[in-house]
Design a binder for these strands. Structure first.
Lengths: 210, 210
DNA sequence: AAGAGAATGTGAATGTTTTCACTAAAATAG
DNA sequence: CTATTTTAGTGAAAACATTCACATTCTCTT
């Protein structure tokens, strides 16, 4: 069993998230246990990979039977830090921002939006879907007061650099970046970039070259 | 220089997309050439990696100087298949679907929405932002008529399995899947899954384990 | 209760990706 | 014009990730 969790390879962490989704799905079918083979086949992995991934965190399975679904769900939730609610802030209340705020998935999972930041003066001071809208200039203060842990960036290209600087100064632990500007983790802020166009472009690459 | 483009490793293709974005950025600053080192440092890669990635497709640089920005942009656009417009269809006109349709990035890039499919009967036959809305039952017929190349899935969990089956039957070349149901490429359809929660969960994992 | 079958956990082998370190070419400075 | 600096391209080495293959343990059938 592996030690340093902070150095765990990203591919493994990403697959844990996939396993969790699959387990919840299988559980909803009323099942109570599952083999590494089934967990693998549902997701296009190999069974050895599933077992090896899980073995990094402990021995959760039972030879001859497989994995107890409820137990494995709880273990993975623990590993991924999903046993508590994470406090998010949306920065940029455009179309995408609104879509994310209203997305059911966040609330049914371990994520909660506790603040919105928006440049447009006419919106500051109001609420959207019950969440208070603040001026980005107050990010530092509000971040502390509201204990913001992750910011979700859905602002236009031009504003990214300035806003990211404020996020770093405020010492916010993490950012999920939906803007087309690639950001690098800096200071105490861990960044994850999400880029639709990159995804589309990998498709067009393979479509063009077959 | 590498041969089989269809087998090109995904990480390389993804980085090409990043290089392209960076090049456009540098170009907009009025520059005409760039070194592998700068291209690397702007994105958190190593310069050797940039050079090796590009060397898979040809020799585009000039020793002592670096890469001509215009030339490299054109080369990468060619490699990624971005020298023409790709015909997209949105399936599921919810909040996220609407946000994507109105997203400027698609039109300023090589992507164009040519159809929308939506279950809600009251919307079928109408238009949204000038794009015709069709019944999903007609996917096969419309896909051929409109020469749809990539479908963007923004439908609820429950509908995914049924809709995906129709996409495969229609033989649509690719799907960009924003639903929380992970899909595997099947038939002639290449799938790319985009999962916000997986991204959030990798953040919470590392936040929890430091 | 014994044997067959199922399935995990894991060291070793294999495969893939990244980095190193150097050669060679172009640019620049003296 | 020569020496120095910059930088691409690239085999070889290293690091990383995946798969193999098997010992082990549990379950189930008869």
């Amino acid at each position: 069993m592996r030690e340093k969790l902070g150095k765990m390879p990203l591919p493994i962490v990403e697959r844990l998230s996939v396993y969790l989704l699959t387990l919840l799905d299988i559980k909803s079918e009323g099942r109570v246990s599952v083999s590494s083979l089934e967990l693998a086949e549902r997701n296009g992995f190999s069974s050895a990979q599933v077992r090896k991934d899980l073995s990094c965190f402990g021995t959760f399975g039972k030879k001859g039977t497989g994995y107890d679904i409820d137990l494995l769900i709880e273990k993975i939730r623990g590993i991924l830090g999903l046993k508590r609610t994470w406090r998010l802030a949306l920065i940029g209340l455009g179309n995408l921002g609104k879509a994310l705020i209203t997305h059911k998935g966040f609330t049914t999972r371990a994520f909660e939006f506790v603040a919105i930041f928006e440049k447009k003066p006419s919106l500051v001071g109001k609420q959207y879907k019950g969440i208070q809208i603040y001026n980005i200039e107050n990010l530092d203060k509000i971040a502390k007061a509201k204990r913001i842990e992750i910011v979700v960036l859905t602002i236009p290209k031009e504003e990214v650099a300035g806003v990211y600087e404020k996020v770093i100064v405020a010492g916010i632990p993490a950012a999920l970046n939906f803007t087309p500007v690639r950001l690098l983790s800096k200071g105490n802020t861990l960044v994850k970039n999400v880029n639709f166009f990159q995804n589309l472009e990998t498709l067009t690459f393979y479509l063009s070259n077959f």
